[in-house]
């Protein structure tokens, strides 16, 4: 039964070469992304300290996570972080990009973009340490507040139960605003100028222009920004670990921190993996609507 021929007659060699190009990347991806992912799922069903024997415990680890208010609380904290890491940078980035598009073209626009993008170049750990200093009671932020007479609002921002999470979120805004602005303003330069011209001839204000033309046409890019920043919020670890380590009293604890403590300090790989799997699922659930936004555009 040799009647079936390869799909690309004579193209077999190309087929092989194609695979040869893909294989190195595929092997790396498999070994460092897919395999660990599958192993995490496996670990989430066992009781294990990281090196001894594993015991199968079924769904126990998931039940433990769901029953522990401290662990569940971390998920709510990370949802609150979404506001700071995602909604504020994306909406503010849109406004800034739109203003720059209209007013600051040429050299000043490039300069503004560079300044806004700078935080992206600084490692998150360094940003966390620097902001930790700036936001401390004797730090620069409070010094400025005192200088303008706002002595009453000064506080140890990262050590205050009500303000620690917004303060961490503010660091996130600082880091991610530049990314969103640069991405959105680059996309704006590709929009057809005649659209804006005709709008202006019709007497459209900046705001109308923004709502009616800019935002609808940038749906794709906004979707990308939302996707990247929401993942940064839900999977946050470095900024939080360096600036507050989850404190004070778990008020800034996010799943990333608890996974780290569970796995390495407590040597409970099972619950740590269960929380990690749940976090992955949560990220996917939150992200999927944005992908739809992209596709429809």
């Amino acid at each position: 039964m040799n009647s079936r021929r390869p799909p690309f007659a004579g193209g077999r060699w190309e087929h092989v070469v194609g695979w040869l190009f893909v294989i190195p990347a595929l092997v790396m991806y498999g070994a460092f992304v897919l395999l660990p992912l599958l192993m995490s799922v496996q670990y989430s069903f066992v009781r294990w300290n990281g090196f001894g024997p594993m015991t199968w415990v079924g769904l126990d680890n998931y039940i433990r996570v769901l029953e522990d208010p401290d662990l569940l609380g971390t998920i709510f904290n990370s949802l609150r972080l979404v506001v700071f890491f995602s909604f504020i940078p994306v909406s503010l980035g849109l406004v800034i990009a739109s203003i720059m598009h209209r007013t600051a073209t040429g050299r000043y626009g490039a300069l503004a973009r560079t300044v806004l993008f700078l935080p992206q170049v600084i490692p998150l750990v360094a940003a966390g340490i620097i902001w930790g200093r700036l936001l401390s009671l004797p730090g620069l932020v409070n010094e400025i507040l005192r200088a303008i007479g706002l002595d009453d609002v000064t506080r140890a921002w990262l050590g205050d139960f009500d303000w620690a999470l917004p303060a961490v979120g503010f660091i996130g805004v600082w880091v991610l605003l530049g990314f969103c602005t640069v991405l959105l303003s680059t996309a704006m330069t590709k929009l057809d100028p005649s659209l804006f011209e005709s709008a202006r001839i019709d007497g459209a204000s900046w705001f109308t222009e923004f709502i009616r033309i800019t935002v609808p046409l940038l749906r794709n890019e906004i979707g990308v920004c939302l996707t990247v920043t929401v993942i940064a919020a839900l999977a946050a670890f470095d900024i939080v670990y360096v600036s507050t380590a989850g404190g004070p009293g778990n008020s800034t604890a996010v799943p990333g921190i608890q996974i780290y403590i569970l796995a390495f300090t407590e040597q409970r790989i099972g619950p740590a993996s269960a929380l990690a799997v749940m976090l992955t699922a949560l990220v996917l659930i939150v992200i999927l609507p944005f992908q739809r936004l992209n596709r429809e555009a």
């Binding site: 936001l135 401390s136 009671l137 140890a156 921002w157 990262l158 050590g159 205050d160 404190g247 004070p248």
Partner: peptide, 12 residues
């Protein structure tokens, strides 16, 4: 204790 104790690190 200092009012900002929750944010003070060992070295500080």
């Amino acid at each position: 204790f200092p009012e900002d104790i929750n944010a003070i690190e060992y070295t500080d």
